[in-house]
Design a protein around this nucleic acid. Structure first.
Length: 573
RNA sequence: UGGGGUGUCGUCCAAUGGCAGGACUCUGGAUUCUGGCUCCAGGUAUCGAGGUUCAAAUCCUUGCACCCCAGCCA
């Protein structure tokens, strides 16, 4: 499967789960409240890479627009140049596109609205509804009061309009140092909602902006800017996460004072996943602290990390649909994500044989120099995928874990005297075991094959209990395989005795296996391809691959009944 | 102890006064040249206490629990 070659449109056929946002939009459309229009937006701040939590927001916003034949804007909320970078701007577009969504011509930047916002700020000052405050940050905090106690009014709160106008324009001209003054809305310092206690609208920040350069010495705060951005773009339904619920009265206040278009904000719960951290701050800390290889480390919940791991956009979208949309805080089981991944990959991934931990098998009764060909099915789930030829010869490799000298009760695979089927090839019976005299470790197996069973069926109708995978030693290519486990050892990474989520990092989240033996056809797979290694899992060709040494990331294992049984039996003992 | 929100299977989401349903996980079985896929079967839930009603997850009263808010972050 070539990720670049399949059609990646987001009009998924996945059955839709009912959700309250769709109900609201339907109701708005029925009553004609917003002229039947649906305009949504995804408004990331370009200060980090997008992750699976953003994928939920993207799927909801773009999904609703698609469903109601409306539009969804991609808008950068770039109001804080001290944290934002061009690198992030580019990655965000790449990731949204990869997920399968198209913003068309609706790519916007909050920074483009700065002039308009500035004029509106002047208007509020003229109306006596905003003032320049000279208090320090500490003093402002002190004056704000607490959750239980009302705040006090700043001594600068009742400055004259002309003075405010003068000071504010000079703030923008750069006459005052960073942090020396702010513009605040004049609302109510005793308001029970902390957001309404004269929130800061502008701060002085003499930092060049990645788009507007050094044109501005002041930058708008999110609470002032965000509602205006939505209003300017004619957003009908502003879908955001729960923590902005009690900011809504403030957005309403600004919009009402200005008398401009009023979007409807609807809040939903953000995504949480077991064994995963989702905050950009924490992800950044892992990248900067070297806990992972980078933003696109295949263990990361970032979209670029998941892409490198082998996740498909279809699987991610199906997941976002299945988790639903609601207002209650929740933690989704990581197993659901993996289920969606396997479901998609099972349909599409080509099958190959690869041996991760090779154990040499010598077929004693097979002619020395002969190379036979056997035919293998590329994808039993897709008859159009066709078949391929595999070389078979006297010396093979099988998976070391497919042999046990003293097999426990439910172990069906190879052991001395037992017959198994080599997939698509012959039945073999183990006749002897070679060992390292020093360590007593098994170094090779001697077997005989039944020439009557070519292709995998016996004339007498007998059928071994197990079929195992193999590669021909003379024809196999070497490969490196990177196996990934959960990045965190605990279901809730924040549940750390010392309060530091990093102490819950799983030390075994990455295992590099070299000396893997893969069938020859596998060496031709291009970077990014996701394939199934039969009986093992799905694997994706990593960009670190070279012509000499392909590198595979284990995307996800197959479900493994034997692993479960053996674990359970081990538990009993 | 102010304000805003939320409580339904182990997990996530439905049910909009009328038989609490689906998915994931788990368990058992069938099938199988992948211990995969598929198929069948099974288990477990309405936060508590009152009330209204023929009928309550849903309406009312009350209690409890959990989440968010005191950045010149978003």
């Amino acid at each position: 499967m070539e990720p670049t070659s399949h059609i990646n449109n987001a009009g998924d056929s996945t059955s839709k789960v009912a959700n309250f946002i769709r109900d609201i939009i339907n109701e708005d459309n029925r009553t004609g409240k917003r002229g039947g229009k649906v305009v949504t937006r995804f408004p990331p701040e370009p200060n980090g890479y997008l992750h699976i939590g953003h994928a939920k927001a993207i799927c909801i916003n773009f999904g609703m627009a698609l469903e109601f034949r409306g539009e969804c804007h991609l808008r950068y909320d770039d109001t804080n140049p001290s944290k934002e970078e061009e690198e992030y701007v580019e990655s965000i577009q790449r990731d949204v596109r990869w997920l399968g969504f198209d913003w068309g011509k609706h790519l916007y930047y909050a920074s483009d609205y700065f002039p308009e916002m500035y004029e509106w700020a002047l208007q509020l000052i003229r109306d006596g509804k905003a003032y320049v405050d000279d208090l320090t940050a500490d003093e402002i905090r002190d004056y704000r009061g607490t959750l239980n106690r009302p705040g006090r009014e700043s001594p600068y709160r009742n400055r004259g309009i002309e003075e405010n106008l003068d000071l504010f324009t000079r703030m923008q001209k750069g006459e005052f140092p960073d942090g020396s003054r702010v513009l605040r809305a004049k609302i109510d310092m005793a308001h029970p909602n902390m957001n309404m206690r004269d929130p800061v609208m502008y701060r002085i920040l003499k930092v060049p902006h990645h788009r507007s350069g050094s044109r501005w010495n002041i930058y708008p705060m999110y609470d002032w800017a965000h509602g205006l951005e939505d209003s300017i773009e004619g957003i009908t339904h502003s879908l955001c996460s729960l923590e902005f619920e009690d900011h809504r009265p403030l957005y309403d206040w600004f919009i009402d004072q200005l008398g401009i278009h009023h979007p409807r904000q609807i809040e939903f719960a953000r995504l949480n996943l077991t064994f995963t951290v989702m905050s950009k701050r924490k992800l950044l800390a892992m990248v900067k602290g070297g806990s992972v290889g980078g933003w696109d480390d295949p263990r990361m919940p970032t979209l670029c990390g998941m892409r490198r791991r082998g996740y498909t956009p279809e699987a991610v979208r199906a997941f976002c649909e299945r988790i639903g949309v609601a207002k209650r805080d929740s933690v989704v089981d990581f197993a659901l994500l993996e289920h969606c991944l396997r479901e998609d990959l099972n349909k599409r991934a080509l099958r190959f044989m690869a041996v991760l931990h090779p154990l040499k098998v010598i077929i004693d009764n097979f002619p020395d120099e002969t190379v036979e060909e056997v035919e293998a099915i590329n994808n039993p789930e897709d008859s159009n995928a066709g078949t391929r030829k595999l070389p078979f010869s006297k010396v093979l490799y099988i998976e070391a874990s497919d042999f046990m000298e003293e097999p426990p009760k439910k172990f069906f695979r190879l052991s001395p005297g037992r017959e198994v089927r080599l997939r698509y090839a012959y039945f073999i019976t183990c006749t002897g075991v070679e060992k390292d005299p020093a360590t007593n470790a098994v170094t090779a197996l001697h077997c005989t094959y039944d020439p009557q069973t070519k292709g995998g069926a016996a004339p007498d109708g007998r059928s071994p209990k197990a079929t195992i995978h193999w590669v021909s030693a003379a024809h196999a290519r070497d490969a490196e395989v990177r196996q990934y486990g959960n990045l965190f050892a605990r279901e809730d990474p924040d549940d750390a005795p010392d309060g530091d989520f990093l102490s819950n990092l799983n030390p075994d989240s990455l295992a590099i296996i070299d000396n893997c033996k893969i069938e020859p056809a596998l060496a031709a797979c291009s970077i990014g391809s996701v394939v199934q290694f039969e009986r093992l899992g799905y694997f994706c060709v990593d960009p670190d691959s070279t012509p000499e040494l392909p590198v595979f990331n284990r995307t996800v294992t197959l479900r493994d009944e034997w692993a479960r049984i053996s674990k359970r039996e081990a538990g009993k003992r």
